[in-house]
């Protein structure tokens, strides 16, 4: 029996679960315009995982990176949910650097 994949799968469940929380909270306090930074961080973690030789650390970096990448594509829809009132709306958001430029880009959604 090889428990690595199963244990990693359970860890993935919690990391995705954490994703629900940070997408909701992150959008509320910082806004969806942070998406390119979140996406960049996700890709960076996946690239770093290639150079980490410890099995568990590399795998968890990959899962967490992928979760950030996915979450970056969820932020826009979460912003709309808050505007409709399905989640609390906060209008004093801490905007990211270059927010005015990012606003002109099409935010990804899958």
């Amino acid at each position: 029996m090889n428990f690595f994949g199963f244990a990693l799968g359970i860890s993935t469940l919690f990391i995705i679960g954490l994703g629900f929380i940070w997408v909701i909270r992150g959008e509320r306090y910082f806004g969806y315009l942070w998406w390119p930074y979140v996406m960049g961080l996700g890709i960076l973690l996946i690239v770093i995982s290639l150079f980490v030789h410890h099995l568990w650390i590399s795998a968890l970096l990959g899962v967490f990176g992928a979760s950030l990448l996915w979450g970056s594509t969820e932020l826009k829809e979460q912003a709309v949910r808050a505007e409709i009132g399905w989640y609390p709306f906060n209008d004093k958001k801490i905007l990211p650097p270059l927010a005015r430029i990012i606003r002109k880009w099409k935010a990804p959604h899958l």
Partner: peptide
């Protein structure tokens, strides 16, 4: 070490 990349692909594509 490709274990992280495989984990990332499995996670992203399956979500």
């Amino acid at each position: 070490n490709f274990i992280g990349l495989v984990s990332a692909l499995a996670t992203f594509l399956s979500i």
